[in-house]
Design a protein around this nucleic acid. Sequence first.
DNA 1: TAACTGTTATATATTAACTATAACATATAC
DNA 2: GTATATGTTATAGTTAATATATAACAGTTA
Lengths: 127, 127
Amino acid sequence: MIIRILLESDIPIYRQIRNAVIEGIALGHLKPGEGLPSVRQLSSELGINLHTVNKAYTLLKQDGFITIHRQKGVVVNQRTEMKLSQWQQDQLSQELKPLIAEAFCRGLELEGINRICKNIYIQFKEP
Amino acid sequence: MIIRILLESDIPIYRQIRNAVIEGIALGHLKPGEGLPSVRQLSSELGINLHTVNKAYTLLKQDGFITIHRQKGVVVNQRTEMKLSQWQQDQLSQELKPLIAEAFCRGLELEGINRICKNIYIQFKEP
DNA sequence: TAACTGTTATATATTAACTATAACATATAC
DNA sequence: GTATATGTTATAGTTAATATATAACAGTTA
């Protein structure tokens, strides 16, 4: 899978990589068991430092999205290993709150929010 | 309205203030025409610097949530001045994407996402 | 006049993000 | 064995974002 980053973005590079991998998994571009490029390879491709990629991979590992395997390298986990915990759901709710509050102030109805969420959601595929 | 910040949070203080004001407006705790504390007053209350509050207010002004009035000070705008632009909707969609992608990977269905959004949304009130 | 308001300027401190280079144990291929 | 990969760790340095400190300015209000 091709990972793109924007050096001008206000989102840190390691976070852009993290998001790109998660979105890649959700979109079905990255399937369980599939390998990701090594930290040296990806950092070279993107023209950035090894440690920036490593930071992204470490986050993805902590969050259950990938496993670092001694032989196979960096591998995408099964969906069962990504299961939503109560803490993660609370975290999601906390991150959604300011976004929905802003949309509400701007006059967007619940139906409008649901429509936007759906348009994002339908792009995603089960593995 | 009482604004709370967490100095240990990984979210910058000026952004916490921005979010708190927007959520305050959405919740109906801050009504159109209502005044906000001055930058010196709020910074003093929170034990932080004047410029940090000023940065938050400047953002809120740019985003159409407040107006700086020479006589009245900092005032909450009418909802009509906060209206959602196409650019803002695209921005919202872009910010939602990684959150929904993560939730999808973790097995949360669209109905679950809608439920979480609704639970946040129903707390909000029209002015 | 005195005490406020937001705004601007300048300088500095602190922290987060990113880079550079090197080394280590381990694994794979020749 | 040798060479080349892998992730990981350590150290040092740079750059950018965040937050602070202090001061001043033009208005406004009492």
